[in-house]
């Protein structure tokens, strides 16, 4: 466990913010900022728990964690805004556009083609914004 009993709520948030900034860049911070006037606590919990606790664990490489997240966001459906952030994050931690497209193709088997299509079109938007089209 990486959560020492003495750790405060603020400590976990600070560590999470550092991980969020490293992985998601501006995209993650924008999401947190946009929660400030409606639910800062949700912003706090996303940073503190998802990033300060889970993403900071050493057991999987950042690249693996982003693939895991892409698989889930694709399978859940309706998470296109989060896919946008995490496709950017996947690129930030060193996944290639080809690997991301391959992961979404693989997900079609387990989640069905409509969800794979929706996720792939989010990837197309992100790749376009970053000058990464065409893929391959």
């Amino acid at each position: 466990m990486n959560t020492a009993p003495a750790e405060t709520r603020q400590d976990r948030f600070d560590r999470g913010l550092e991980v969020l900034t490293r992985v998601d860049g501006e995209g993650g911070q924008k999401v947190i900022d946009s929660l400030a006037d409606i639910s800062p606590e949700l912003g706090h919990q996303v940073v503190a728990w998802a990033f300060g606790d889970i993403y900071d664990r050493p057991g999987l490489a950042p690249r693996d964690r982003q693939l895991v997240t892409l698989g889930m966001l694709t399978a859940l459906g309706g998470c296109e805004p989060q896919l946008d952030v995490h496709i950017n994050a996947a690129l930030n931690v060193g996944l290639t556009p080809e690997e991301i497209v391959e992961a979404l193709l693989h997900s079609a088997v387990y989640c069905g083609m409509p969800k794979a299509l929706n996720a792939t079109f989010v990837a197309k938007k992100v790749f376009g914004e970053r000058g990464l089209l065409p893929v391959g």
């Binding site: 693996d64 693939l67 895991v68 080809e98 690997e99 497209v101 391959e102 992961a103 387990y110």
Partner: peptide, 19 residues
Amino acid sequence: RPGLDRRTRSCITLTALVA
């Protein structure tokens, strides 16, 4: 397909099944 190794494909499969 060669684009991802099997270990990575297993990661993706596990999460899709949980989701």
